[in-house]
Design a protein around this nucleic acid. Structure first.
Length: 457
DNA sequence: ATAGCCTTGATG
DNA sequence: CATCAAGGCTAT
C-alpha cells in the first residue's frame, strides 16, 4: 500500500522541489541508533539490550509538510500533523471563499498556521494532499453502515452479559405491582384543574409557578378545541396506561426508614434501580421502541435515565410538604442535600419539580408524553439512528401539541406547549448537574444494572 | 473553526 | 496482531 501511494504520488503531478524530503529514512526501520542513554529504561534485558533501536521506533519523528508540527503519518496522501489533516478534511471540499488577504505568500508554520487558511490550504495541495481521498457522502455512509453492522454483530454477543439487555429481554414483569398511588390518576380529559393558580404558598417563587388559564376563560366553542383522532387517542392512552403501571410500588419492598436508607449518594443510586426497571418495562410497551436496534435501545435507555428520574420526581413532588410522595412513603427533598452535600443542586432540583408540577399537576397524559419525548431524544449519546429516533420523537411532539389543544383550546394550548418543552430543556442542565453525583460514588457500592445504565466503572 | 484524541476497517 | 489512515467527537 505504502509503495503504491508513494509511486503514485511521485510519478503523479508532484513538482518534487518542496516535498517532504526529510525523515523518509525513518521508515526504513534501520534506525541508525543514536547511542543516547545506554541506560535505556531498564525493563527486562531480553534480546540485545545493547541496541537501542527498539526505542527509536516510538521517537521516530515525522514532521508535518504543511506546518512543521509533529506528524504521525500520511493523511490524504501527504505526511501531516493531526490538525492539518483535520483542516484539510474540513476545507478542501468547499474551497471557494478562501482568499488570502495578502500576496498568497504567507508563511505557514506551527504558530502561523491559523492566520491564513487560504495559504494553508494552498500549501496542503502543494505538498501533495489529495482531495479525492476525502470520502464523499455516499462513501461515508457506506463506511458508517459497515461500522453499524459490525457493532450490531458484536453487540449481540455482548448482550448476554448486559444487565440492561437481560432486563429488556426478560418476559417477566419484575415490576408487577399492587398498590396504585393516591386515588389513581386521571384519564384523558378528566383532569381536575384548580380554578386559581396552583399552590403559591409563600408567593416568593411566583416565577417558578406556572400560571394556569382560569377555567372560565376557556372558550366554550367546541370548534376552538382540537379533536383527537382515534389513532391519537389510542396512542395516548397506550402510553399513559404504560406509564401508570410504572408508578406503583414494588411489592417486595417493605416499610423502611428514610433516614437510614438515604445516607450515601450510592444509596440514592441504588434506590433508583427500581425506577430503571420500571422504565424498561415502560419502553417495552412502546411499539416504537421495539423498532430500534438493540444497541440503540440500550443507548437510548442509558441516555434518558437521569431525565426519567427527574421527571418522575416532579410527578411525585408535593409542593406543600416539599417532599416526594412515593408509593413507598413520603421522602423529604432534604435527603438530596444530605446524601450528596450539593446544596445548589438540591435547590435547582426542587425548582424544577415545582415548575413541572405546577404546570402538569396530576395529568398523567402529560407526564407520559414527556417521558416519551425523553426516551426518543435524538440527542442521546451513542445513538446511531438519530434521524430515525428523531422522526419517532416528532410524532410525540405533535401528539403533545394536539392533546394540549384538545384540552385547553387553540387559544391557550401554546402556553402549555411552550412550558412543557421548556421543562425538557431544563432537564439537560439539571441532569448534567446530577451527573456530578456519580463522580463521588464508589462503583463498588453500586448495583450492576445501575453501573451499566449510568456508564460507571 | 480548530485541534487533539478516539474508534475502526483494511492491510500486511 | 500491529500499523495505517479514514471519520467522529468534543473541549477550547
Amino acid at each position: 500500500m505504502a509503495d503504491d501511494s508513494d509511486s503514485v504520488a511521485s510519478s503523479g503531478m508532484m513538482s518534487e522541489d518542496e516535498m517532504f524530503a526529510s525523515s523518509s529514512s525513518a521508515s526504513a526501520g534501520t534506525c541508525q541508533g543514536q547511542p543516547e542513554q545506554p541506560s535505556t529504561s531498564g525493563m527486562e534485558a531480553e534480546e540485545k539490550p545493547s541496541f537501542t533501536c527498539r526505542k527509536m521506533k516510538l521517537k521516530d519523528e515525522k514532521t508535518c509538510g504543511v506546518c512543521g508540527d509533529k506528524a504521525l503519518g500520511y493523511n490524504f496522501n501527504a505526511i501531516t500533523c493531526e490538525s492539518c489533516k483535520a483542516f484539510f478534511r474540513r476545507n478542501a471540499l468547499k474551497d471557494k471563499s478562501m482568499v488570502c488577504l495578502f500576496d498568497n505568500k504567507c508563511v505557514v508554520d506551527l504558530r502561523t498556521r491559523r492566520f491564513c487558511p487560504a495559504c494553508r490550504i494552498r500549501k496542503c495541495y502543494s505538498i501533495g494532499m489529495n482531495r479525492d481521498m476525502i470520502l464523499d457522502d455516499s462513501e461515508r455512509r457506506k463506511r458508517m453502515s459497515k461500522v453499524m453492522a459490525n457493532r450490531a454483530r458484536k453487540g449481540s454477543s455482548t448482550m448476554l452479559t448486559s444487565p440492561i439487555a437481560v432486563q429488556i429481554k426478560s418476559e417477566v414483569d419484575t415490576t408487577d405491582s399492587v398498590m396504585i398511588p393516591q386515588e389513581s390518576f386521571h384519564h384523558i380529559t378528566e383532569v381536575t384543574r384548580p380554578p386559581t393558580p396552583y399552590g403559591k404558598p409563600h408567593g416568593n417563587s411566583s416565577d417558578i409557578i406556572f400560571k394556569h388559564v382560569p377555567k372560565e376563560s376557556l372558550p366554550t366553542d367546541r370548534n376552538m378545541y382540537h379533536q383527537l383522532s382515534s389513532t391519537d387517542k389510542c396512542l395516548l392512552s397506550d402510553i399513559t396506561e404504560a406509564y401508570r403501571s410504572t408508578l406503583a410500588a414494588m411489592p417486595e419492598m417493605g416499610p423502611y426508614s428514610i433516614e437510614k436508607e438515604y445516607q450515601k449518594a450510592s444509596d440514592l443510586i441504588n434506590h433508583s434501580e427500581v425506577v430503571v426497571r420500571k422504565l424498561i418495562m415502560f419502553v417495552k410497551h412502546l411499539e416504537d421502541f421495539k423498532h430500534l436496534t438493540q444497541e440503540d435501545q440500550i443507548a437510548a435507555l442509558k441516555a434518558c435515565v437521569m431525565n426519567t428520574l427527574l421527571l418522575r420526581s416532579a410527578l411525585f413532588y408535593n409542593i406543600e410538604k416539599d417532599a416526594w410522595l412515593t408509593p413507598k412513603g413520603e421522602i423529604p427533598t432534604s435527603i438530596l442535600k444530605n446524601a450528596t452535600g450539593f446544596v445548589s443542586l438540591h435547590n435547582n432540583h426542587v425548582y424544577y419539580c415545582r415548575r413541572v408540577k405546577s404546570m402538569a399537576l396530576e395529568d398523567l397524559n402529560l407526564y407520559a408524553l414527556l417521558q416519551a419525548l425523553i426516551i426518543f431524544d435524538p440527542a442521546g449519546f451513542n445513538v446511531t439512528g438519530r434521524e430515525f429516533i428523531s422522526s419517532i420523537q416528532d410524532r410525540y411532539i405533535i401528539l403533545l401539541k394536539h392533546y394540549l389543544e384538545s384540552v385547553f383550546s387553540y387559544d391557550y394550548a401554546k402556553d402549555y406547549y411552550v412550558s412543557a418543552l421548556d421543562r425538557l430543556c431544563d432537564l439537560k442542565v439539571l441532569s448534567e448537574e446530577h451527573a456530578k453525583i456519580l463522580l463521588q460514588v464508589n462503583p463498588v457500592d453500586v448495583e450492576p444494572l445501575m453501573l451499566e445504565v449510568l456508564n460507571l466503572k
